[in-house]
Amino acid sequence: MAATEQPSRAAAALKRRAAGNPAPPVVELRGVSKRYEGGDVGLDRVDLSIARGEFVFVVGHSGSGKSTLMRLLIKEGDATEGSIRVAGRDLGDLTRRKVPYYRRNIGMVFQDFKLLPNRTVHDNVAYALQVTGASRKEIRAKVPDILRLTGLSTKLHNFPDQLSGGEQQRVAVARAFVNHPPLLLADEPTGNLDPETSIGIMQLLYRINRTGTTVVVATHDVAMVDQMRRRVIELQRGRIVRDQAAARYSGGEPNTAELGALLKEHLEP
């Protein structure tokens, strides 16, 4: 079943590729800054380009701007400066009314899963299709399929609070991918999960990436990044300090001795 499904998905991706302008990258930031009220800097003149089909880790400490970047990409806020283009569309031109239509083209996975507590696994995933006005037939065809892909076929009628964290995150991934978006964003998808469960989620994201979907993962899961050896973008105080292909997490990560020095520095004055 899964084998027959694969080509059709690839064909859909091809069609999508043919429809849009083929040249531009999926995500393109030019001189993007985000300042919050009160003077906190979320991002500081960031230039970034992510090509179609890439798998990118965005790493950095808490407050380095990872989440700000993700939030800007789903238009939960506006950039203070600069321009953001996603799939050839300038987010600055996007009116409030059009934001929902834009978000349907982006899969989003969160640290806290953000499932609808009153709906079963099946209905949670189906909701992402229902908002697009999909027919019942379409839903009946797609939802079990995507749940099989994420390994949740036996939990169809469970509610989120009856699932483990890993299973809930799988539901979230299934929901994010059920529309086959060209771009999937994951903000700390493994932040609440144990290492073993995390690997399962990462594998799932990797498989999704293999279908041609661009995947951007914000994380501070060192082991994961080291294992996957993908492009790593490191942020520090809202700036990109490293952008490296097939990299490890450890670029700017202080080891124990450095951390001790850092703490000392903080405590002295």
């Binding site: 789903i74 929902p100 239509y101 978000r103 953000k114 609808l116 909701y127 908002v131």
Partner: peptide, 16 residues
Amino acid sequence: RREVEVMKLVGATDWF
């Protein structure tokens, strides 16, 4: 309100 927030993130229009 959390439910509504999630719906919006999934791409539901206000009227939906």
